[in-house]
Nucleic acid binder design. Structure first.
Lengths: 193, 193
DNA sequence: CGACTCTTCGACCGGATCATTCTAAGAAAG
DNA sequence: CTTTCTTAGAATGATCCGGTCGAAGAGTCG
């Protein structure tokens, strides 16, 4: 009874690894059980279904990413390198999770409406993060913006534009260039001369 | 009629990517077909079975690795850096193919005796490669060996010892260290003082 | 035009796999 | 001994997947 939460956590961590590697469909409950050295039915004692585990995993990953990004924006570096590191962390994480994305973007959206909500929640959080970075940068005189809210929206949209290629191509030199280009363009429009 | 071989090649290249990502079992014929934008049954016009495709893919990958390694040992650098680059290329390739390995090391070895043969063939080739590098190095005075054949066997065995962790752990800092250690040890025992 | 070959594909089949349930039985606690 | 917590082997029903078959475009030759 005591360890129930602990066990749930272990399940999430193991599942997270397997899901991120193979995606939702290709991951089997047997594999998850094997990774935990437990019988398959034991897992059903802690989670009601595969879908519920997936849900929890998505939640967990979002949490991890959030805390990583949170750490970045709280650092005392200059705003410019904070923004750079923010983008870097974000893209690395998305690349790692591209298998989830493949799962999400495939046929069965019907059952996965919780992802829609997760996504929205995450979008709002991210916008707030960016707004905060921009606001701090403007305050300290590094950036030159009169409407940080609008600018945050723009930056956020630009970053989202970089996500899509992750489903199609694998990360390439092409992409590094594009990423660098977009961030530099953002800067030249943002940084005080 | 003309393009049949061309098509087989396309199938191999597409399959190679999917197999290396998901392993044998988790790769479906439908996926291969989808990647080629063809119907599943069309593929059976070019290859008799999934196993036959897998066989061809393994063959193709071995060919690629062989030519890469061949290019390395033919370079005119000093023997020491050739050997270093040889190990590097070899390990990178093996890492990329670790999913095949997982497939190979799983249950159904019964049907995959061709892999045994492939493996033997490749082992002999690799030993010859290493022997050649060691021989060239000895000849130019960089190495100090009186039996290059035996030394090649030793080096080859040592490198094979590095393969196993690839199935268990993912590449880590730990492994970099181990790789570096083994290659340095080999050198200090080999290089003329 | 037809006869003939080359190539593609949708529909289907039977066996395998998978998520999920059920039942029972070790532990642990009281 | 009874009760609660935890595990797992076996069973089940639904889905998936490798492989087959027959038909039908699409050229090609006479």
């Amino acid at each position: 009874m005591i360890d129930k939460d602990k066990y749930r956590e272990r399940i999430i961590k193991a599942s997270s690894e397997i899901f991120s590697r193979y995606g939702y469909n290709k991951t089997t409950m047997d594999e998850i059980a094997r990774a935990l050295r437990k019988g398959k039915s034991s897992i059903y004692y802690y989670y009601k279904s595969k879908e519920e585990i997936f849900e929890a995993v998505i939640d967990y990953e979002a949490q991890v990413l959030k805390s990583e990004l949170s750490a970045v924006i709280k650092s005392t570096d200059d705003p410019e390198s904070i923004l750079r590191r923010y983008v870097e962390v974000r893209m690395n994480s998305f690349e790692k999770l591209s298998n989830y994305y493949n799962a999400i973007f495939s046929s069965d959206l019907s059952h996965f409406d919780f992802i829609e909500k997760q996504r929205e929640k995450y979008d709002r959080m991210e916008e707030a993060f960016i707004r905060y970075v921009l606001w701090k940068g403007t305050r300290s005189g590094h950036f030159n913006l009169n409407d940080t809210g609008l600018a945050a929206l723009a930056v956020h949209t630009a970053l989202k534009g970089l996500e899509l290629p992750l489903f199609w191509e694998k990360r390439s030199y092409e992409m590094e260039i594009r990423l660098d280009a977009i961030i530099n363009i953002l800067f030249y429009g943002i940084v005080r001369k």
